[in-house]
Design a binder for these strands. Structure first.
Lengths: 104, 104
DNA sequence: GACTGACGTCAGCATGGGGTGATACTTTCA
DNA sequence: TGAAAGTATCACCCCATGCTGACGTCAGTC
């Protein structure tokens, strides 16, 4: 059975700013101030996107005084990579065997 | 350097119906009529989504008389899987080393 | 306690993009 | 040649969602 990819997760990652956040967080754990500097986006805007990423379980927070650190949860990306790899493998096999349903 | 994921491709795959089409096409090459049967969507709606998938290079067409067969291009999914795997690996390393930028 | 800085929340606005119906085009078949 | 079936295209409506400004909250510092 083919593991279906989570469209909600995809939709969340499909936003350019959110993907930029994810890419930045993959390299190092950052707090909101850093993300404002790096992306050039408004703090409010970032906060909204970070909430979306939090709700989807892509990132998790770690309070540190007045600051809030955001770190990526690698499992989410790993599972996504796995699902796509599986899908690609199935497609390769279909291509190899030329599996095709007959015209009705 | 981190290979950045293509947000346009992600956005295309983030739609439930389009992802369903992709999942179906991964298993076997189908024509529009089959997809209408399988998904229960209107023909016009499917045709629109198939155009999007075509324009992004996710699928390719193969005319067969009155019918049009759609087949998946595995490379696209493979590259996507690779990008996410790389991103996940970077995130794992960051987690392991506890790489964190200091508070300003 | 007053002030400042870091974040979050909320309401409003504007745009993108998905769904649909009408229609056109092409191929097959009687 | 006319009809029917498969598919694509276009115009339109409408809703989801991203961006913003105003404001609230909490922690630290004086």
């Amino acid at each position: 059975m083919l593991t279906s990819v989570d469209t909600d997760l995809l939709r969340v990652l499909a936003d350019p700013l959110r993907l930029q956040i994810v890419t930045l967080l993959a390299r190092e754990t950052l707090c909101t101030t850093h993300l404002v500097e790096e992306t050039g986006a408004r703090q409010t805007n970032l906060s909204n996107h970070l909430k979306v990423l939090r709700d989807t379980g892509v990132v998790e927070t770690e309070p540190c005084g007045r600051f809030t650190y955001y770190k990526l949860r690698p499992q989410v990306l790993e599972q996504l990579a796995g699902s796509f790899a599986e899908l690609a493998a199935t497609a390769r096999e279909t291509e190899l065997n030329n599996t095709k349903r007959a015209c009705p």
